[in-house]
Design a protein around this nucleic acid. Sequence first.
DNA 1: TAAAATACATAGAATTACAAAGTATATAGA
DNA 2: TCTATATACTTTGTAATTCTATGTATTTTA
Lengths: 112, 112
Amino acid sequence: MISKNLTAASTKPIILGILQQGNSYGYLIIKKIKELSGGKMKYSDGMLYPVLHKLEKDGMIVSNWVMANETRPRKYYEITDLGKEALLIEKEQWSQINSVLNELWGMSPNKN
Amino acid sequence: MISKNLTAASTKPIILGILQQGNSYGYLIIKKIKELSGGKMKYSDGMLYPVLHKLEKDGMIVSNWVMANETRPRKYYEITDLGKEALLIEKEQWSQINSVLNELWGMSPNKN
DNA sequence: TAAAATACATAGAATTACAAAGTATATAGA
DNA sequence: TCTATATACTTTGTAATTCTATGTATTTTA
């Protein structure tokens, strides 16, 4: 299982990334993350929904209820332009951190 | 500046990575991180020292005071075998997260 | 008809991060 | 000589966040 800190750091880019590929709703996003990570990340609903609410409050995503005929109502989320910008910033930050870590890890140890 | 979450997630692997390259002390570690990240990450002392104390409590690192003749005493830290193991686990988790994010970001958007 | 899956929501306890304040010495500059 | 800055480590307290637990309700499967 992925550590708490890494999970927290990746929640926003993962959700925005999923919605960039197409609209989705909470329950499905949870399953998608589990599937994408091969079971290494599991969000409970109590963890994910508040994050979605916050992202909506911050204007990163917008929601609308969809009443499909055969099933229960679902709250579909869509990424906004602001959300797409935020995703780009996230990507850049991940790349920056990765270069720091790679620089550190790429060097041979104990040369002091 | 790197986001709070990403900073939190990378603190442990960065510190352990720095100590893997050779013993160091708090003040120098702070400067090293700033330098490594090109100024994108800045730890205050109030942020870093408690993390060092926790890593020591968890057995990842050990410390000893060094009284150099010309300067103030410094508390040098050294990575332990447990810390080296933890670093390997960290590396693996970062690689897992990166593959999830790359899978998500590598796909072309809005194909729904 | 019972259990499991689908679907969303939120209160509040528990944790955690980190700014701020404290101690102390050395050095550079005015 | 005096002051400001840099070096070096520590801890307290609170602000913010996290996520467990709990609640509601419908549908599907066994």
